[in-house]
Design a protein around this nucleic acid. Structure first.
Lengths: 214, 214
DNA sequence: ATAGGATGTTACTGACCGGTAACACACTTC
DNA sequence: GAAGTGTGTTACCGGTCAGTAACATCCTAT
């Protein structure tokens, strides 16, 4: 998950028994922050989960806030890498890319330990503060919007900005409702169906490469 | 905001200088929980804002958890009362009701102190716990879904459950994005436009009372 | 006037919070 | 073997957390 390694000369760098303490700390923080929330997880819990101690944490991170920032940056990096992988399967087919992105959202939402979007959750938990992670969140959101917008533009969407916003709202809603609805009542099961209605109306019902007009 | 009052005999019950301490506490908690988050607000801050003391809080509420439950119940009560007012302006016009509900969402989102949905925020903050407020949240969500579904059913929606979920996702996304997007980039500005695309596709473009088939 | 209930005041508990100081140990590299 | 670096251990700081005890005061209904 986090990759830095010291110059341990001749040792084969995979399968080292214990990763560096910094990586263990970031992994533990990632797990705990995501499952329980930033405000509910103290540094003691993190160092315990990482099998180390508080001093090692503060030798590697300036503060808990800094740790939160790096947690969110790491998750965003993963997120966009995953998106890049998904769209790579549909070269030149922006509508197929969008449907695959949405499909992967639903699939990931079904996983047991899924607790919504790390950035969105953090935005809720950190509202009303000047936490440095807020800028990371806003930047990630803008990037995600651009990502969707680029696909819609390539698909000749009629009302580009409005449709982009509509799709963003669907995605955000799909993430959030994993937490605010009971587990057996997740409304995002129909995320794909709603997406298709919107794309059919705004792109025309045929694959994107065909229709410049509906 | 909270209505109970003691039998103060002949006094005109409006314009009493100081409401009962219980109401002041609940109002203060409502304000602080909503603006800063449940986990960031301590009981000391609440009693200070209410102009009272901790003993009065614990004489009126069993615990902070209980206070959180009553905070959310009160907000939900307000919420559905507002919805009832809105739909009352469009009798027999379920599509008009839905558009008015969504319109009011956008308008409320523009208010300065708007911090998303109290229940959704609480769901994020309380995830991974057994907090008693979670049941309140789930019940409110189910009720909101039924509210939307009833209107869509009255409007003869084609794919009733799927469309209901789609609209729910839009609403939830609209709430959440007030916190996760920068203030000048709120994607819910186009909430109404997206709603109309979906309704046009699933109800037919004419007002609902006309078309049983599209 | 008085009784009872609602409210205020002060002080306290035990636990946890983020963060730090001082020191000891292990390991690699030269 | 010496130096340097990464890591572990223990104890501690001041502050805040939710919650309580004991006592004082005010208001209102009778």
């Amino acid at each position: 998950m986090s990759g830095a390694q010291t110059p341990t000369s001749g040792v084969p760098e995979e399968q080292q028994a214990k990763p560096r303490v910094r990586d263990r700390l970031l992994d533990a923080a990632t797990e705990l922050f995501y499952q329980q929330g930033i405000n509910c997880v103290g540094v003691d819990a993190i160092v315990c989960e990482a099998g180390t101690n508080k001093m090692s944490l503060y030798r590697n991170f300036a503060s808990k806030d800094e740790l939160v920032v790096q947690y969110l940056e790491g998750r965003q990096q993963e997120h966009f890498a995953r998106w890049d992988e998904i769209v790579a399967d549909y070269p030149g087919d922006p509508r197929g890319q969008l449907e695959a992105l949405f499909q992967s959202f639903v699939e990931r939402g079904h996983e047991r330990a899924h607790c919504g979007c790390p950035s969105a959750n953090a935005a809720v938990e950190l509202r009303g503060t000047n936490h440095p992670a807020l800028e990371v969140i806003y930047a990630g959101r803008a990037r995600a919007r651009q990502y969707i917008r680029d696909r819609l533009e390539a698909a000749d969407a009629k009302n580009l900005e409005a449709l982009t916003d509509g799709l963003i709202l669907l995605l955000e809603g799909a993430m959030l409702t994993r937490l605010s609805y009971a587990e057996n009542a997740w409304p995002a099961e129909n995320l794909l169906a709603t997406l298709k209605i919107l794309l059919d109306a705004e792109l025309g019902p045929r694959p994107a490469k065909r229709g410049k007009r509906a």
